[in-house]
């Protein structure tokens, strides 16, 4: 009896090499343009002529000076001012926590107020301005004075 020869059937394989080439090229391109840091934005309004006078009754204003912050606000029609000095000699650590504590106190007494005017002196570094904005806009998740008006 003759035996029938078995047919060997090769399973066809998809050629993955071109796909791998393409995917690795795409990965390289995306890695070059990817940004891994986390970024956010701080919104502010540019103070126009007369904007500080438009501030509501409290009229909270933070001047950023070379030595720290000068905070002023209105109580019974009169301006009150408080100075918050930097936490070190060269002013690399801005008194943000002190400013937040003061803002919390003022917010507690004037819960409807939302606006603060930030007025930086010409020579101060930008990080001091951002630290002031950060300190007065919120304390953790609780908003304090989120409407930031910056005097250019």
């Amino acid at each position: 009896m003759r035996r029938r020869a078995r047919l060997s059937v090769d399973t066809p394989e998809v050629n993955l090499v071109p796909l791998l080439d393409m995917v690795s090229l795409l990965i390289q391109m995306l890695l070059v343009s990817a940004q891994f840091g986390a970024f956010a934005e701080l919104e502010s309004q540019v103070a126009g002529p007369g904007t500080p006078e438009d501030a509501e009754r409290l009229g909270l204003e933070v001047r950023v000076v070379a030595t720290g912050y000068l905070v002023s606000w209105t109580v019974d029609g009169e301006r009150t001012e408080r100075s918050l000095a930097c936490l070190d000699e060269g002013c690399t650590h801005w008194p943000g926590p002190g400013l937040t504590a003061l803002a919390q106190d003022l917010k507690g007494r004037h819960p409807s107020e939302r606006q603060v005017v930030i007025d930086p002196d010409p020579g101060v570094p930008f990080e001091g301005v951002v630290a002031a904005m950060d300190a007065v806009r919120s304390a953790g998740k609780a908003p304090l004075f989120p409407d930031l008006v910056v005097a250019p």
Binding site: L42, F126, V130, M133
Partner: peptide
């Protein structure tokens, strides 16, 4: 962050003069 307000203040003023009312700072 190290730039002084001498540089950034005028950039904000110029934005305002060009018609942009709000400035959003990336942090």
């Amino acid at each position: 962050k190290r730039l002084s307000w001498d540089v950034l203040g005028p950039v904000m003023r110029a934005s305002s003069d060009a018609g942009f009312e709000n400035v959003r700072f990336v942090v």
